[in-house]
Design a protein around this nucleic acid. Structure first.
Lengths: 211, 211
DNA sequence: CGGTTGATTGATCGAGATCAACGTGCGTGG
DNA sequence: CCACGCACGTTGATCTCGATCAATCAACCG
């Protein structure tokens, strides 16, 4: 699971926008003329299928950038999953900052590759354990996680169903690895146990950040 | 499934090397001081697990580059899956070519994301159909494919077992979508049928290349 | 309060994994 | 040139994890 997150410092912010929970930021096919940096809230990047299924490719939390793509059109949907404030960068000026963009793209590649390995080879409980571990790392190593996303979002990210995610969380709770104050507020009681449940693919903890 | 492949033109080749089938090019943990461009043969990039399992992240065919990563150490293994000739680039001089590197990284990100969606949401036969379609596109749209990789490699790439891959291929053969001259030589009899079996996620055909 | 949305729990089903033979080339040495 | 051996691939039988179908429960809000 990815742990490092690029937080590039790119000047010349075009504007700051606020999105409501559920609001679309861009759609598949939209022009890739901007990219974004979350300042508060959380964003979901996903593909939606004809049959209503969805694969979430990434979540983006405060400080993280998204929306940068190679082609002229977006290949995914981006939506706010909570009330979200973002800085918007015009693509043109941003092109001047090649080193930052490169770091961003490489980071995106690595995160997608790690995600791929998890989806391809880990069991349901390993995916959920890894998800919580990753989220904890991204939130600065905190043991109390406030999940911005619903169970459905988590399921779509981990390529599971909502029921399977729920059962995995229940099992973690029964094993006293985590505790729930609320369905969306997770307390990691035993970080070592959680990490050992991640199977291989476990990123040791890595609080390092770029940017 | 990814279709576009960056074939960057980066001068200053350090050297040309030849690897035998099965030979390791780099290992997880090795320094990321070089990157490579295949001139003939094929390369497999994968992660190996403690339990012997493997997830193939990508295959690289003639013209394609690989081995570029952000951190100081490789996160995957790269091996030749056939006798392979490659150009080797030193990382230092390559850093001068930011636009090419950016294209490379973005392409890698997009390929990994598409792969992720396939692994996460497609059925076994859809994955295999997509794999063959993608390979055909990468080989220039030819209908006769010579597979450089074994069934095990394909299975590890698609996050399936060798048996499931074999059954999917048999089904495609029974439906007269493909024909096999040899286990490694596939003839696509009905490209439209093959594409329609790819489910969503089907890249229309896209013979476009960068570089 | 009841209504609504999101999460959990339970019962059953099924695609693909696993376990186990069986084929088929293909290279090597007699 | 053929027999043997081995690696790779296919096919079959069974099992299992997670999907699906179906209630039930918990928060939140009018």
């Amino acid at each position: 699971m990815p742990a490092k997150i690029v937080r590039a410092q790119i000047p010349r912010v075009h504007s700051i926008v606020t999105c409501q929970r559920g609001e679309q930021i861009y759609a598949e096919g939209d022009a890739t003329d901007k990219c974004f940096q979350v300042s508060a809230g959380a964003v979901r990047v996903s593909r939606v299928f004809a049959n209503g299924g969805r694969q979430v490719v990434s979540f983006h939390l405060a400080g993280e950038m998204f929306g940068f793509e190679a082609g002229p059109q977006h290949r995914f949907f981006a939506e706010a999953i909570a009330e979200t404030r973002m800085a918007v960068f015009e693509r043109g000026p941003v092109q001047q900052h090649l080193p930052e963009l490169l770091a961003l793209a490489v980071d995106g590649m690595e995160r997608a590759q790690e995600h791929l390995v998890v989806i391809g080879r880990q069991s349901a409980i390993e995916r959920v354990a890894l998800f919580l571990t990753d989220l904890s790392n991204r939130l600065g190593g905190t043991r109390q996680l406030t999940l911005a996303m619903s169970r459905q979002d988590i399921a779509d990210y981990l390529a599971l169903t909502i029921e399977t995610v729920s059962r995995a969380i229940t099992e973690l709770r029964e094993r006293s690895v985590i505790a729930l104050r609320h369905a969306r507020i997770v307390y990691i009681m035993n970080p070592d146990a959680l990490r050992s449940l991640c199977g291989d693919a476990a990123s040791p903890s890595e609080p390092a950040r770029t940017g």
